[in-house]
Amino acid sequence: MEIKDKELDHGVLKVTMTGSLDVAGSDVADAHFAAIDQSKTRIVADLTHVDFLASVGIRVLVKTAKALGGRGGKLVLLNPNDAARRVMFTTGLDRIVPIADDEQSAVIAAS
């Protein structure tokens, strides 16, 4: 799992993940989200290059969304693949965390 951060407009931070949100990748992602400056409360998680999402990855995303929500912020998911969307649908993640298809929509949803 490789992760890169990029500042977008309106104080939104884009976190781009490349790899699998399996056990190993989710550990990396969890540590990365936990280390982000607490002043960053609006985060777009770019999942375009995430090729696999398991329940351990759902756990990281829900945990992050809850933490941001608790600080008055928001997590938005950007462009998950079809398999990841099915996992989100089955678990209900798509009902509690916004999913955007492009970066502009994601920034608006996070702002």
């Binding site: 329940s55 756990r59 969304a65 809850k66 099915r86 996992v87 089955t90 678990t91 009902r95 509690i96």
Partner: peptide, 20 residues
């Protein structure tokens, strides 16, 4: 399945995904 962020469990979905 989760319905709202506040009450959502952060884990335990493995068996649900296996069944699906």
């Amino acid at each position: 399945a989760m319905t709202d962020l506040e009450s959502a469990s952060i884990g335990g979905f493995g068996i649900l995904l296996m069944r699906e």
